[in-house]
Design a protein around this nucleic acid. Structure first.
Lengths: 341, 341
DNA sequence: GTGAAAGCGCTAACAG
DNA sequence: CTGTTAGCGCTTTCAC
């Protein structure tokens, strides 16, 4: 049975170098021999050994997606679209795909070591590690090709990343609530030691201020993106007599709605609620959730392409991309009887 | 800078064979030299090249998860728990993880070719391809190590797989509805050219028959696991005056509930609804969905372990595992005032 | 216990 | 255009 490139060479009556050239579309092979070889390869169902090729070329044509602990445990994250888009984009560039994930059962340092020890991928896509990630530092230090999906650690400069404009997203949400003539607008934030959470809060504050609202500290409640956090935070905000709430994740928005309803109030008649993320559940919920949609697939695709370009030498240093987000209006914000616009 | 095993050998004043032995815990190295070598490796931050090792050993210590087109487009599937569990189990056995997915942008044959061409993984986990999958046939034919996650194509015998007991699951759902003294129980099935869908229907029928119900064809409506299918099918069943519905996916159950509510009826007071899958959304919905829960993580873990065992030679031929499912009672089925039990 | 030597299957100069 | 040769970085016999 035909196993190696040498076998094909023997059958074709040429050297193995020629077979290699024919396979790899090198320019310097006569069309006749190339055809003969390609035909043989087909006929014998020969598949060149990827590992051997990788050893010789010093490239594996594999990219890795790394999902650190902090991110993996966050259910809000739209992993599936990210994963599938990275796989798709990688494939279009003829790269295979590996994935590393820390579900929390491993110390982050050890996780980092394992990935570094494995030289099976040419580059890494690091899914936004919110805390300070040891892997990030190591990658920077060792000059290993990588791109961050989401926001990189605060202050890092010479790093490629693709993230969302959280400030603008929050501003858009608040602007909408203001257009609906809401007076007391509360916010349920994410963990405020993370950048996206801080950015969304900042967007809220800046838009409120711009619109001439006074900033009431009591209207800001910190959550952690979970259903119960949304529920509890809403109970606090209900005491404050808010007439609208900006929950900075869809899941928290759902928790908030539950709390509102349990108080005998209804959404959107009594209180408007706006979420963030536009997860699949947002459209499924009833009432369907008004929320901020993020171009997740675009983020994943662009990050992957940045990495591939870097691996292929087509780049001029790190690139930073910040994608705009959009407001998706559904049924959880009130409808003005006499809209101004 | 230290790059290869030879560098370490030189620094240690031994041959590279000895370094290799020390690294791999071979028995025949004196404790003194082993310690010296290990210390040097640590100190120099040397990481043996995975590709070179793979070429020499003819094993990569990588397993692949393959998600074919038909499955990837099915939103009902709980990919994330499967993926994370496979990764976890692989890691525990010191295997890295690759993933291949066909989002539909590629012909299934070509997808299959790409995977086969890539000799970077030692074994494959094939995520239940409902249709007839070319990859499945090729893997069987080439004797490549693989395990099916879910149900393998009908009639395949010498294949390892881990699936769920769909018949028992459906029976349990129906038995529950019968205990609640429902009289006209409808079912919204999945695509009946797939095994799980047929099994769930079969479970429905067998339990109905056993309980002495007459089997009314009009109570059976075929869906495709989508929200709209659930909605439309329910509208048909409403004509039939059902008082309970078994939707064979959570998403269809949500669609059904929407249809019921739009008819001015309520769940569970007027009609009981029971779903299947116990997706994350099931617990989020209001009313929270009563449904059949499947041990997804267990399935993924066991399939992975089966594959690893096969790769390590610890097996005695193919193994078939069918896992039991359980009824999760929430709020979409009526509560009897005078329960029998 | 350790070293020498021969691969693993492919690519990539360098000749010719 | 094609063959020869020398690796890529590791493992693994087989001697000693």
């Amino acid at each position: 049975m035909v196993k190696t490139l040498d076998d094909i060479a023997r059958l074709a009556g040429v050297s193995r170098a020629t077979v290699s050239r024919a396979m790899n579309n090198a320019p310097d092979v006569s069309e006749v021999t190339r055809q003969k070889i390609l035909h043989l390869i087909q006929e014998q169902d020969f598949r060149p050994n990827t590992v051997a090729r990788a050893l010789a070329t010093q490239r594996t044509r594999v990219i890795s997606l790394v999902i650190p602990k902090s991110t993996a445990s966050n259910f809000t994250d739209p992993f599936f679209p990210v994963i599938s888009t990275v796989i798709l984009t990688a494939r279009q560039n003829e790269y295979a795909f590996m994935m590393w994930m820390n579900d929390g059962s491993e110390a982050e340092e050890q996780f980092c070591e394992r990935i570094l020890n494995n030289s099976l991928s040419d580059g890494i896509l690091l899914y936004s590690s919110l805390g300070n990630d040891p892997l990030f530092d190591r990658l920077v230090k060792t000059d290993f090709p990588f791109v961050v999906i989401g926001a990189p650690p605060y202050g890092s400069k010479n790093v490629s990343f693709v993230n969302f404009n959280d400030i603008a997203g929050a501003r858009e949400a608040i602007a909408y609530l203001i257009r609906l003539e809401h007076q007391r607008i509360g916010i349920i934030t994410g963990p405020l030691n993370t950048l996206p959470a801080r950015d969304r809060l900042m967007g809220y504050q800046s838009m409120m201020r711009e619109a001439g609202y006074s900033l009431d500290e009591h209207l800001i409640v910190e959550g952690d993106y979970t259903l119960t956090a949304g529920y509890r935070s809403m109970n606090i905000l209900l005491e404050e007599k808010v007439d609208a709430v900006f929950a900075t994740s869809d899941i928290m928005a759902l928790g908030a709605i539950r709390a509102i309803q349990e108080h005998g109030l209804s959404v959107p008649e009594d209180i408007s609620v706006i979420g963030y993320d536009d997860l699949f559940v947002a459209s499924l919920a009833s009432p369907a959730l008004t929320t901020i949609s993020q171009p997740t697939r675009q983020m994943a695709a662009q990050a992957t392409q940045l990495l591939v370009d870097q691996l292929e030498g087509k780049w001029n240093g790190p690139r930073q991309v910040t994608l705009p987000v959009t407001l998706t209006i559904r049924d959880t914000c009130r409808i003005l009887k006499n809209p101004i616009l």
